[in-house]
């Protein structure tokens, strides 16, 4: 977790620390708690999908992307897409998320 926190800009949402990744559906974003993320040697990141699914964030991220996804769960796009909170779309996602659930 320390490696992740050093490499990626983390944010706090619902009292959890996590990172923002692109969701699989266009225009969607996922909040993934840092506890479920691992930095790989090549710089890519790996999400521990079972833990993410069990944590309820897979569902909650659907709610935070209204009208942008399909079904009951949203999974992050994996690979090396690292999103910064400097990006306008990410800021917008976070702002909406913080109004929908506790910051």
């Amino acid at each position: 977790m320390d490696v992740v926190m050093n490499k990626f800009q983390t944010v706090i949402l619902n009292k959890e620390e996590g990172i923002i990744l692109r969701g699989q559906f266009p225009g969607s974003f996922c909040f993934v708690p840092v506890a479920f993320v691992e930095a790989k040697a090549d710089g890519d990141i790996k999400v521990h999908r079972s833990r993410y699914l069990m944590s309820t964030w897979a569902r909650r991220n659907v709610r935070l992307n209204p009208g942008r996804t399909i079904g009951s769960h949203l999974f992050p796009e994996e690979g090396n897409t690292r999103l910064s909170t400097d990006e306008a779309a990410v800021r917008k996602f976070l702002s909406r998320a913080r109004t929908m659930i506790a910051p």
Partner: peptide, 30 residues
Amino acid sequence: VVPGQTFAALSPFSDLSYEDAIATPLLPEL
């Protein structure tokens, strides 16, 4: 493909106990 999101995923009460659901702050528009 049905192009929608499930009621459960959209509900602010999902995965909450009755007590937490009743206490959870809800914006008027939500």
